[in-house]
Simulated scan of single mutants.
Amino acid sequence: MGKFLPLSICFVDGRSMQVSSISEAEKALAGHWPKKEADAYREAARLLAAARDGICTPDTAFLAFEKAARQQCLLKPRKSSAGLRILDSLSAPN
């Protein structure tokens, strides 16, 4: 299991994967992205490599990956947990 909360990525070719670590994020970058030449994509690739080499913090690299995936609309929405659904129902007006 990875260090980060898992992100569900759905690639252009329809494949999907869960990403929750630096190594999984690097594998995901090899998938089918709409624009691999985009600045956010290239920055994520650079920071993930730097994190693997110990030059960059993993948190910074993973955030860059998430930003790139979000900009290219590859993130699947997260389902709220059962606990959050209960809290939402309790706080909703009658």
Score class of each variant (00 low, 15 high):
Asn94Val: 11
Arg70Asn: 12
Asp59Glu: 13
Thr60Asp: 03
Glu24Ser: 11
Leu90Gly: 00
Glu26Cys: 11
Ala28Ser: 13
Gln72Trp: 01
Tyr41Ile: 05
Leu48Cys: 04
Leu84Tyr: 07
Ala49Gly: 02
Gly83Pro: 01
Leu47Asp: 05
Gly2Pro: 05
Met17Leu: 07
Ala69Lys: 02
Ala50Val: 00
Ser89Thr: 06
Cys73Ala: 15
Val19Gln: 04
Ala30Pro: 00
Lys67Glu: 08
Leu5Ala: 15
Ser80Trp: 07
Cys73Arg: 14
Leu29Glu: 02
Cys56Gly: 04
Leu5Lys: 15
Lys36Ile: 06
Leu87Ser: 12
Gly31Asp: 06
Arg52Leu: 05
Arg42Ser: 07
Phe11Pro: 04
Met1Asp: 15
Ala68Asp: 02
Leu75Cys: 10
Ala38Arg: 06
Leu7Glu: 03
Asp59Arg: 07
Leu47Cys: 02
Ser8Ile: 09
Leu63Ala: 11
Lys67Val: 09
Thr57Asp: 11
Lys36Ser: 06
Cys10Lys: 14
Pro6Asn: 13
Gly14Cys: 12
Val12Arg: 13
Ile55Met: 03
Asn94Gly: 11
Lys27Thr: 08
Glu66Val: 04
Asp88Thr: 05
Lys79Glu: 14
Met1Val: 15
Phe65Val: 02
Arg46Lys: 14
Pro58Asp: 06
Asp39Lys: 10
Gly31Lys: 07
Asp13Thr: 11
Ala61Leu: 01
Lys36Asn: 10
Ser21Asp: 10
Pro93Lys: 12
Cys73Glu: 13
Cys10Ser: 10
His32Gly: 03
Leu63Gly: 06
Trp33Gln: 02
Phe62Thr: 03
Arg85Ser: 09
His32Ser: 15
Ala50Leu: 06
Ile9Cys: 02
Leu29Ser: 07
